[in-house]
Design a protein around this nucleic acid. Sequence first.
RNA 1: GGCCCCGUAGCUCAGCUGGAUAGAGCAACGCCCUUCUAAGGCGAAGGUCAAAGGUUCGAAUCCUUUCGGGGUCACCA
Length: 633
Amino acid sequence: MESTIKELLVANSNELFGLQIDANLVQFQKTRKEVEGDLTLVIFPFVKLLRCAPQEAGEKIGRFLVDKMPEIERFEVVSGFLNLSISADFWIAQLNAMTGVKNYGYAEANSKSTVMVEYSSPNTNKPLHLGHLRNNFLGYSVSEILKANGHKVVKTQVINDRGIHICKSMLAWEKFSPLNEKGERETPENTGLKGDKLVGKYYVEFDKHFNAEAKAIIADWEAGKFDGFDPEIKAEFERLTEAKAGKDEKAVKGLDDKIKDLAKNQTSLLQEAKDMLVKWEARDPQVYLLWTTMNNWVYAGFEVTYKAMGVDFDTLYYESETFLLGKDIVLDGLQKGIFFRKDDGSVWIDLTADGLDEKLVLRSDGTAVYMTQDIGTAVDRFKDYPDLSSIIYTVGNEQDYHFKVLFLILEKMGFSWAKHCAHLSYGMVDLPTGKMKSREGTVVDADDLMADVVAAATEMTQERGHLEGMSDDEKNKLFNLIGMGGLKYYLLKVDPKKRMMFNPEESIELNGNTGPFIQYAHARIKSLLTKSGSAANSTVSASVLQEVEKDIIKLLVEFPSIIAEAGRDQSPAVIANFTFELVKAYNHFYQSVPILIEQDENLKEMRLVLSANVAKVIDLAMRLLGIQVPERM
RNA sequence: GGCCCCGUAGCUCAGCUGGAUAGAGCAACGCCCUUCUAAGGCGAAGGUCAAAGGUUCGAAUCCUUUCGGGGUCACCA
């Protein structure tokens, strides 16, 4: 409709305006609900051209459109806005056009380029937490949205299975795990703990002993005992201590932190962990066996969590397998003069001409850093998928700078695909008590949270749900679907780019702008359709439409462009907000218009078809968020 | 300190490629179940869109400055 009007005005612009106009002068907006009309054309851009009052210009364009387009029945000009009233026939035709279209609003599958979406990518030394939930739900949803836009999508993650942090957990487990009566250290099997939780426990254990050792060292230093320490360390400690005199609280804390770092570097524990990393890189069989064993515990644990989240991956990349590749590419770039080597042997790239800094890409000892590995992985992926057009990295916004640098390096290295890669940067999740901090124990564990929301959903659904005749299995599926639907919706309804507040009480709410509110509307429609006995897929007719009915059709007609918008912005929030609007409009209709008890069979069928299309769009929309909708609840 | 992001109702958020009187949900108040699932609907209340300048016929939206909050500036990831 909008494009038809636009073409018509452009084609006839000489006649109407006396000169050729640009298509983007034709601007539409939704008609305000206080005034009559279905579509509004903004008149201001034409006022200058016509050299007349807005009222007059509007009248002229309005008369022209009514004359040319039979669907436009009336028009009204109000303070510079041309409000067009479109016939009921037109809206009914729109409704009929979507009836029975199974994937209404989705583009043809695999009709567009192949895109890889990376998400999750946790460290293997800690269990997943609330932040990972936002990441996973977001990555999964954006993948689904891109698919609905016709892209072929490869979902992936890179597993950070290498590095000093893994060695810390391994070392702590070897040193501090108690032995049971059989002489075994703790395992997921003999403790019943999830693998990721067990490994996480030893990472914390390492930290505890590490800090204690550092503290003891500082106490010695403060007592003047420096036996066995390098004189340089002693000098540095004394320098830092003296610098504290007369400084304010904040500065003192900064200096204390530096002293602590100094002491930490002197601990035997850190030295042991470093030795272990060296052994790992040398493929020491014993260390490798331990590494493999503990990583497999973590993977098994993560698998359970991913299953509960309802996310999946098409392919995985392991840092331990790709970090060497990055090194080769960097050395190649060094040959080509893209990078430069400093005297100590470290390799850098100079990005000052692009307004950034110098960035390290290889350590002086030749080992890889994060950036090295990311370069290698990206190149590797484009080799693995020759038809790949871009990679989207779902990573928190604290890494904005990192990705800016990464893409720039890849571009400088001549990879033409680099400019198509994107960082899907999302904001931090805050708690009412403030930031999540692992040191302060305020981290919300992903497994616990999911269990909590499902438990809450179970309780509330048993209280008010319509569960008659459901098996226990069906009931449990329903409780899970409601709990997880609520959690996903809560995390996805906010613009991903923005930092958000996670309120545990609100996340299990059932009323208002929530997942269960939307699920409930779907269940209600399904119940209605079942009772009607109609397939609700016939071609319908109606000479008049009530406002509430027309409002719903207008929203349904918008759905395809909403999917496009969500894809362009990479924002599930666009889908969530649209669905909420649709459900609100439908509930209003449901409450004010008789459906099953309508006497006029034509009208009744039309309302059923309308309802069925709403249920379909709710389902299609929620699927894009990874949320299931129930037939009953 | 340099760079980046944010500031809209008591709270949580929409709206931001400039367009009519800035919208929802929650909380609080008043209604509506002998019509289909009340996990629902209706009504009323709630705002100097952080502040000040500027551009424009028109600014929450664009530009500048200030204030407030956050992130980032590692041979960590």
